[in-house]
Write a protein that binds this DNA or RNA. Structure first.
Length: 766
DNA sequence: CTCGAGCACACC
DNA sequence: GTGTGCTCGAGT
């Protein structure tokens, strides 16, 4: 017997290994194996078992070991990953690797805790203490301590002998008795104590008790949505629903009730949320409705062990509900019935490294496979999804009203071009904004201020020669972070002490321009001294605890003003927030070369605005902008998605951009700019010859907007195609299934000096 | 004549 | 992805 093995390397090829007779009974398709690959031992994935090998007998090597006891991938997952590999131009092995968290691959079983327990019944231990053979005093203390503690928790994974016997954490014993590990260890050797590891049950909610909530009576629109969803769940059929509900319209309640229904059918649900929206608030909502044991959480703050534990909890069927970011779309459910993608339009659902998949497309594929229902929820659907809905691929269901008839907050546009401060520059805060803030504070209300940029000053410039201080590795302007007193490159995270003189002309006085969250915080603290101000951006929210703390401070009213980046734009639901101030929303509009900039701006405005007016006090929004007449700002301020979509689709159609075409981006990166340029030119020339008969258009090659990152030059090429088939025909015909390797091989002489990546349906063009 | 860099190739 | 062996030019 021979095993077909693929490896997690950018080489889309399967390799045949012989299966030693002692492994034939164990090895199954979908298991991981260890095999000699070239000179080294590699983990590979068994994707097939055959009786004949197409490779000469003498070249075939045996499999060294089978890693798994049961397949890590079932038939469906194998099919899904094979499709992924083909669609996103990566190898099958790479696709398979992306499906399993690395903690699971390393066979981590979660966090462990050392436990100490008596090795024999109490009486015997007592006898032992009193016996003639005197125990050393510290050892006697340990035994007494255990005997007195009387903690006899029935531990799930402790051996039966320990049941009913005092069991304490090893660390606790040492701490309480203020002793070294030696006495405990000696007792263990004397077979009086047993020391064992137990897996800590990672419960992301342990520290908080959450009141239970009952389902709300759905509004007629929610009821309608639920009816359609339940119908498909009943029929056990695939259906994709675009749940287009304005902010505060109760999309989550629809998810919750759909899940409740699904659980009664004994099936599982996956809820994908953008990472920044995976807040304690979001999690609480699910926990307050369902039993915590049934919920598995996969978020980025989890370290490998706990993540692996959550994964196993899903796989063994304990967890019925999976809440997580992008990669949770691969959660190892056994009876999947529903996938929800909340904030469907969010760019974070696209993976930015290989395999460059979009969770939305994976979800659709998976739902189809499992006859499950897919719900795409958003207040601002991506134009791709909106277009698919109008083409009938998705069923669009609207939730056009906020719950309890609350109106959407009025948005007032403040034209910054007319605001000149005494220093003849544009102020951070317009007079109107300042006034509105003090009005709301006087009323005891809360305020959220939004700004797209973190740090203090976004630009350091020499007033004499005009030079901008840039990161030497990325050619991107450094941002000054005052708290760190460092300049920071937001692309490579490199920090430097702030320069004292201009590196170009030596001028000793540098100007700090541009506004980040730190500067706004400083300004607001100065203006509103007697109020509590909190900031929320990735500089501060490095731990989940910090995040939680700020949110609860906001919840209890300890914080009056919250200043933040995108982090404040999603999921926050505080009824006492009556004012949202958008300090600046224009940055998204200026990002060059991105055809989605208008869409981004519209989404941003809509979602930030949606943070207010969620309580009986209502709310309002002030929006500062230099582009008051741009349609994304105008329609954003009137909450008019349909009008925005109509106009934006018109532009997209004129320029033949998605959703009217299919994009593929080819990016070449390397330290040597000449090599990068020749490579991309060769690729471009070659493709140009092939496209004459296809409805395909080439854009570029051109330097990428971020022309240099971490010392690597970047050039890219966009392929715009009428349909996917032509795109695939172009790449696969010309370069075969082994696309990436073939590209490097065919077009470039030096494959190690440069990196070529193919990004199907790119979300970022930077 | 030796050694390292740069590159093509193979990996079962 | 990565080790190997080949070729080529600079250096002993």
């Amino acid at each position: 017997m021979y095993a077909e093995i693929v490896f997690p390397i950018p080489l889309n090829k399967k390799f045949h290994y012989s299966v030693p007779s002692e492994l034939t009974s164990r090895l199954q398709v979908g298991m991981r194996v260890l095999a000699q690959f070239g000179t080294r031992l590699q983990t590979g994935y068994c994707i097939g078992l055959v009786t004949h090998s197409p490779i000469a007998e003498e070249k075939v090597k045996p499999i060294e070991a089978v890693i798994d006891n049961e397949p890590m991938f079932d038939e469906k997952m194998l099919t899904l990953t094979r499709w992924m590999a083909e669609y996103y131009f990566c190898s099958w092995g790479q696709a398979l690797e992306a499906v399993v968290p690395s903690g699971v691959r390393k066979q981590m079983t979660g966090q462990h805790e050392l436990m100490v327990t008596l090795a024999m019944p109490r009486e015997k231990i007592q006898a032992e203490i009193k016996s003639a053979t005197k125990l050393p005093p510290q050892q006697a203390r340990v035994l007494k301590f255990l005997l007195d503690s009387d903690i006899s928790v029935p531990l799930r994974d402790s051996p039966d002998v320990h049941r009913g016997l005092p069991t304490l954490s090893y660390q606790e014993v040492l701490n309480r008795l203020k002793i070294s590990p030696a006495p405990v260890d000696a007792l263990r050797r004397k077979k009086l104590l047993k020391v064992f590891r137990r897996t800590l049950d990672y419960d992301p909610f342990l520290d908080t008790s959450i009141p239970h909530t009952s389902p709300f009576t759905p509004t007629p629109e929610q009821a309608h949505a639920l009816e359609i969803i339940k119908q498909s769940l009943d029929r056990n059929e695939f259906k994709a629903v675009l749940l287009h509900g304005i902010t505060g319209s109760g999309k989550t309640e629809v998810y919750l009730q759909a899940i409740e229904y699904l659980l009664s059918q004994g099936r599982q649900a996956i809820i994908l949320v953008p990472e920044i929206a995976l807040t304690p608030q979001t999690i609480f909502r699910f926990r307050s409705r369902f039993d915590s044991n049934q919920i598995a959480i996969l978020h980025s703050y989890l370290s490998e062990g706990p993540r692996a534990q959550q994964w196993h909890k899903i796989r063994d069927g304990t967890a019925k509900i999976v809440i997580g970011a992008r990669s949770a779309v691969f959660a190892p459910t056994t009876k999947l019935g529903l996938i929800v993608i909340d904030e469907e339009h969010e760019p974070s659902f696209k993976q930015e490294n290989v395999p460059m998949y979009h969770a939305r497309d994976i979800a659709q594929m998976r739902a189809r496979q499992e006859n499950a229902v897919l719900i795409l929820g958003s207040a601002t659907p991506s134009l791709e999804s909106f277009y698919k809905a109008s083409a009938g691929e998705y069923t669009r269901i609207e939730l056009p009203y906020r719950i309890e008839q609350r109106p959407l907050p009025p948005v007032e546009i403040i034209d910054l071009t007319h605001e000149i401060s005494p220093k003849n520059s544009h102020p951070v805060l317009s007079k109107k904004m300042e006034l509105a803030i003090s009005e709301e504070l006087a009323q005891g209300n809360q305020i959220i201020l939004f700004l797209n940029r973190r740090g203090f000053a976004t630009l350091i410039i020499c007033p004499r020669c005009g030079a901008i201080i840039r990161c030497p590795r990325c050619q991107v302007a450094f941002t000054y972070h005052k708290e760190l007193n460092q300049v920071l490159c937001h692309y490579c995270n490199e920090t430097h002490p702030p320069p004292t003189v201009c590196p170009e002309c030596g001028h000793p006085q540098l100007k700090y321009r541009g506004t980040g969250t730190e500067k706004v915080e400083e300004l607001i603290k100065r203006l509103f001294k007697e109020y509590q101000i909190a900031r929320m951006d990735s500089d501060i929210m490095t731990t989940y605890r910090a995040y939680k703390k700020t949110l609860s401070a906001l919840d209890t009213g300890k914080v009056n003003i919250l200043i933040g980046t995108q982090m404040v734009a999603k999921g926050l639901d505080f009824p006492n927030v009556t004012l949202v101030g958008i300090i600046s929303s224009d940055t998204a509009l200026y990002l060059t070369g991105d055809f989605r900039s208008a869409e981004r701006t519209f989404q941003l405005v809509t979602h930030v605005a949606g943070r207010t007016g969620r309580g009986p006090k209502g709310g309002r929004v002030l929006l500062q902008t230099f582009k008051p007449n741009h349609y994304s700002i105008r329609y954003g301020s009137t909450h008019d998605y349909l009008a925005f979509a109509r106009e934006e689709l018109k532009h997209r159609q004129e320029l033949n951009y998605p959703p009217f075409s299919q994009l593929l981006r080819i990016l070449v990166e390397g330290r040597d700019i000449e090599k990068v340029k020749t490579a991309i030119t060769k690729i471009s020339d070659r493709l140009t010859k092939q496209i004459t008969r296809l409805p395909v258009e080439l854009l570029g090659p051109a330097p990428a907007p971020l022309a240099k990152i971490k010392g690597k030059h970047r050039w890219h090429l966009l392929i715009k195609s009428k349909d996917i088939a032509s795109l695939q025909a172009l790449l696969y015909n010309e370069t075969t299934a082994d696309s990436l390797k073939q590209l490097t091989k065919e077009f470039v002489s030096s494959s190690r000096a440069i990196k070529i990546s193919l990004d199907m349906e790119p979300v970022s063009l930077l």
